[in-house]
Each structure stands twice: as C-alpha cells, then as structure tokens.
C-alpha cells in the first residue's frame, strides 16, 4: 500500500513514519523497515560471523522495535535507540551460545591467521572477511567504534561491558584488522 490516508508512505519523512508506526500503523512500520533494513543488516552482519544469523537477529530486532516503539520518545532518537536494540539482541543470542565478552584472552590469535591462502599471499582481504577473523567481542567493539562512530564510553553504555575491556577489545581488534587489511609490505 503506497498511500494510507493523508500519509503517502513512499514520500513520508522517517519521523512521520515513526509517529504513524507508534500509532500501530503496520504499513508505516513496513516502510520504515524497508528504509532501515540495509543499515541494520549491515550492522549485524559485521557483528556476526554468519549472514543468516545476522539476518535472523535483524528480524528479531525489528520485531522488538515494533513492540517497544511506544517507548521511543522522539523520532530523531530512532537510529541510536534501534542500534541499542540490535546490540542487545546480538548479545543475548551470543550469551545463549555461551560466548564470553568480558574475558580478554591475550593469547587469542587471529582466527586462521597465516593459514588462509589470501593471508599467505599477502593479498588484501575485504573488511567482512577480516572482521570474521576477530573474536565475537572484538568484532562487536570494533564495529561499534569504527563502523558506528561510538566512543568507548558509549560502547560501555550500550553493551554493559567494563570500560577497560571495551578499550582492550577495540585496540586488539583494530590491530588485527590492520594486519589483515593493510597491503603486505
């Protein structure tokens, strides 16, 4: 349905869609999902190692957003509010899989580092592949820091991890990415 009452969904602003969705307009929410799905799926694909899992989590996050949309105070806060839901959904799924985010394993190597043909050849590996070689915690913190532009304290607030742990995951993850992404010299 392209138009609904006075609201033409295709031309409506995101704020108008959010307000309509808060009034339980499913078509407006559908349009909002259409517009935001690329960003949401990309965010979760960077945090997860599998595309299928990321899409499942993105779907869960959108459904949770629909259920809690009345809690959103202003439409302008939607991206940050949704990002928090997505991260919480990711963390809950990972904790169900017994993933531990608080622990910093100094000896953790880059997954399969040096064993892949690309790494062995010193070839440039794309970001997604490079992220897949980090641990779950490093991937989460690096994505939020470099991808979403969040500060360490904002990551602490959104994930509930200790500040030192977040700093360490960002640093170690960035170093690993540097080794994987920079052309071999």
């Amino acid at each position: 349905m392209a138009a609904r009452g006075f609201l033409n969904l295709a031309q409506a602003t995101e704020a108008a869609l959010i307000i309509a969705a808060q009034a339980r307009d499913q078509a407006a929410f559908g349009e909002l999902v259409k517009r935001r799905q690329g960003w949401a799926r990309a965010l979760l694909r960077r945090m997860c190692s599998s595309h299928a899992e990321a899409d499942d989590l993105a779907q869960d996050a959108f459904i949770k957003a629909w259920e809690r949309l009345t809690d959103l105070e202003t439409p302008a806060a939607f991206p940050g509010w949704f990002r928090r839901i997505a991260v919480t959904t990711f963390l809950m799924a990972k904790r169900k899989q017994k993933a531990i985010f608080e622990e910093i394993d100094d000896a953790s190597p880059i997954a399969a580092e040096g064993s892949t043909p690309e790494a062995a050849a010193g070839a440039k590996i794309d970001l997604e592949k490079a992220l897949a070689m980090l641990s779950d915690a490093e991937r989460l913190c690096v994505t939020l820091n470099h991808g979403e532009g969040l500060s360490h304290s904002e990551i602490v607030e959104i994930t509930g991890l200790p500040l030192g742990t977040v700093k360490s995951h960002v640093l170690r993850g960035t170093e690993k990415l540097k080794r994987l992404l920079e052309p071999a010299t």
């Binding site: 999902v33 799905q37 690329g38 990309a42 694909r45 779907q59 459904i63």
Partner: peptide, 12 residues
C-alpha cells in the same frame, strides 16, 4: 547491505 524486499515482507 542492498535492500531486500523479502526481508521487509518477512518482518511485515
């Protein structure tokens, strides 16, 4: 990520 209509339809 490129828009995926199937994804939006599934959520709707």
């Amino acid at each position: 990520e490129p828009a995926d209509d199937g994804f939006s339809v599934q959520i709707s």
